[in-house]
Write a protein that binds this DNA or RNA. Structure first.
Lengths: 336, 336
DNA sequence: CTGAAAGCGCTTACAG
DNA sequence: CTGAAAGCGCTTACAG
């Protein structure tokens, strides 16, 4: 039914091996032979069967990218960056969304062993320290964005601690002293949220500012809606505050919405800052002060590490912290 | 090296076929046999080689989704919806981004014939009528979002015409008469932009309002930045206008930013409306009046059509127009 | 520069 | 309910 390499070989009067050589760009082929083969491919409309190649070669040219969801602009923009970086190495990216659900994250982890992908860029949110052993596979993998896990795999991390301290310092330097924080996950001790919260508390302490539990509000899935809800909740308590550090940008943008809806002036009454520097942060009203964790750098570095591992590199595991950049904008500085 | 089905069979004292039956959930297996096989799988850490299965079965369980870029929230949210819909049919989605580039879109089109995916959800922006013949493949495919192509494939369309007319009618009903439009692509005759622009002009005509060329501004890639630039350009011309219809939401959000930066009041001075109803439209300041093309409905319908085609359905091609919904918000109504 | 042989790890009929 | 045989369409050594 489908045209095979053998059919092409017969049509061109060569062996299947030669067709394979042409398809794979093997350099030492007489121009004449190549022309014949290409003509036969064209005449028969031949397309190589990738599954057969994969079976024989043991590689697929595909890497997986497991992220919670693409509706979150941070992950969507990260995915675009990963696709671009993989393309530079001739690799295709297969995206799997896990919904930040532990079970689905563990399923994604098993995927490379099914030989559908050669390696995995892995950005888990639901996994905890008890799952570290699950990462001890011998499949090439690079962990992204988190710093939960020390040890068994490469990872490329956002500089959560210094990034957070920079943005909180900025708020303090603006004279803010009652800085609320939204998006915390009270029971979580290891994730991005916990790390950023700890860094926030540390920075306040450096300035001798008390860390007030009543100014910390949990924020579910870090969607815009969670940010709006958290802010509504905080306003409902009647607590005074003059700034809000949202643990990511979508939370911050939701919070800005809730503040604006109640006529609170930003930044005059309350300054707002986030984390991620998604594109939207440059176009919101007001524009959003935030930390840029350098997505492109992260994606590129992670793909390079993964490519090395896939090539058989067995050196010690790397822990790379990406550089960050603080962007101060209207939500803390006012219009300029 | 890797554990194979044969190894498992030997360990369990059965034939490879029986292992295959267990792996694939074949129902008629003695419980005892199944237990033995599962124990052997566990003991050896066996994982099926998907490439081998694909080669033999001729199917992969993977469908492709080709979209311009995930940084565009419309496509990111569509991708999430497609992944969810595919999951309900036990299918995995492989996302390919094309950058709306014609060459890369044509490459994506050839992908299913390499047997890496069983079918394709295809959302081209760069293709024109001259490429229609390229769609006459016999690979299962469903076209998304556009209505460029009549004929050789199924497609699920956004209701661009009625959706646009509804939102423009809304602006007219608010008393707006000088309604600018941003995001047009002057040389394009067949894409989403051209269709929405034509519907805009048609609606104006219905109300006896002249269509002014000087109020139509082109808008490149439909990013936030393009919207801000287009709006800056329009303001620079000194043209009077009391409303803006942006051809999508990101353009509208960029335009809102540019208007706010110049102190133009929304909607008092200028009302703004978009198209897509991305999540952000509910949280911007002001919130954005827009058309919801029902992404989830589109994704679900498209996957169902694709599944039918993959199952061998050869009936006539379907053209399905998804229902739309107009959401009126602050950018045209003011605060409530 | 090109060919003949073997086999990657599964599943598809076909038996029994 | 389970097995033996054949083969999916390629690529990997190995010759020459």
């Amino acid at each position: 039914m489908a045209v095979t390499m053998r059919d092409v070989a017969r049509e061109a009067g060569v062996s299947p091996k030669t067709v394979s050589n042409v398809m794979n760009g093997y350099p030492y082929i007489r121009a004449e032979t190549r022309t014949k083969v290409l003509a036969a491919i064209d005449a028969l409309g031949y397309r190589m069967n990738i599954s057969a190649r994969n079976l024989k070669s043991g590689r697929t040219g595909v890497i997986g990218l497991a992220v919670p969801e693409l509706s979150n602009p941070y992950f969507a923009e990260l995915a675009d960056a990963a696709i671009a970086a993989a393309g530079e190495h001739g690799l295709t990216v297969m995206i799997e969304t896990t919904g930040a659900d532990r079970e689905r994250e563990l399923t994604a982890l098993a995927r490379p062993r099914g030989h559908l992908v050669d390696g995995l860029l892995y950005s888990p949110l639901g996994l905890g320290p008890e799952d570290v052993d699950q990462l001890r596979t011998n499949t090439p993998m690079v962990l992204l964005g988190e710093r939960i896990f020390h040890g068994p795999v490469d990872h490329v991390m956002i500089d959560n601690v210094e990034g957070t301290k920079a943005v909180v310092r900025h708020l303090l330097d603006q004279g803010r002293r009652r800085i609320a924080v939204i998006g915390i996950r009270p029971r979580e001790r290891v994730g991005t949220g916990a790390i950023r919260y700890a860094a926030y508390a540390e920075m306040l302490a450096e300035y001798g500012v008390p860390v007030l539990e009543e100014l910390a509000v949990s924020g579910g899935k870090w969607h815009r809606s969670s940010g709006a809800d958290a802010m509504a909740e905080l306003l409902g308590t009647g607590q005074r505050f003059d700034a809000v550090f949202a643990l990511n940008d979508t939370l911050a943008l939701g919070a800005i919405r809730a503040l604006a809806a109640r006529g609170v002036r930003i930044p005059d009454d309350v300054a707002v800052a986030g984390f991620d520097n998604i594109d939207e942060a440059s176009y919101s009203s007001p524009t959003l002060t935030t930390v840029d964790p350098s997505r492109v750098h992260i994606a590129r570095t992670a793909v390079e590490l993964l490519v090395q591992r896939m090539a058989g590199d067995v050196s010690e595991h790397h822990e790379i912290v990406a550089p960050f950049e603080l962007h101060t904008r209207e939500s803390t500085l006012g219009p300029n």
